[in-house]
Amino acid sequence: MSAVLRADGLSKRFGGLKAVDNVSLTLDEGRILGLIGPNGAGKSTCFSMLAGSTSPTAGRVFLGDREITGLPAFRAARGGVVRTHQIVRPFANLTIFENAVVAAVQCSGLDHAGARALARETLEFAGLAARRNEYPAGLTLAGRKRLEMARALACAPKVLLLDEVIAGVNPAEAQEMVTLILRIRDERKVSIIMTEHVMAAVMRLCERVVVLDAGKLIAAGEPKEIVQNPEVIAAYLGKKHA
């Protein structure tokens, strides 16, 4: 098993605040890694640093053997690390199809026809093909989260960073989302890091979980061990319950 994405001692300071403090993690190829922690633990900042939208104060990020620390986001995306956003950010002025085309054209290096074919096929994969000529405003929240994933997939990524794609949708939709994530891993051969608050989904999807609290990595391991870990319980519920 080889590491596809590796972070060594990532830290990010905002003035006096250490949002992320010396976090190292490894994503193995073909795996789903969970990144969990209470609100404000630094999960999203971690994602931003992995995807290049924020450059770390210290530490390094490797994609395979290639160092991608501090590359601008568009270069990281073209290199194969693509993120989604917790609060969905579709391009409202483009149709669903065009949303996917932009990503395919910019990242995949395909020509006009090839990129459009990739976009069409990706929307089909994500179950959005029927609505491809509509605008994102017409989609439900779950639909827009799907679009967010489809757009990232149209970049033909090696690593997908999913930021809370399940939180906020109803149970049936959450079930579909879990299936979609598994299919992304198995059929698309994409390795995934996901942050999530819905623990049931994390338990089902992730082979490994790392836990952040107040910017620090406090635990790592299989989901079953993690939920028993007193430090993790303390981070979520307070010391009294641990």
Partner: peptide, 23 residues
């Protein structure tokens, strides 16, 4: 051209556009 879609994406959301590879 495919440039036009990238421009509209920038108009809609610069950061999200960068995240899908638009320079």
């Amino acid at each position: 051209s495919s440039l036009g879609l990238a421009l509209l994406a920038i108009k809609s959301d610069v950061d999200a556009a960068s995240d899908v590879g638009v320079s």
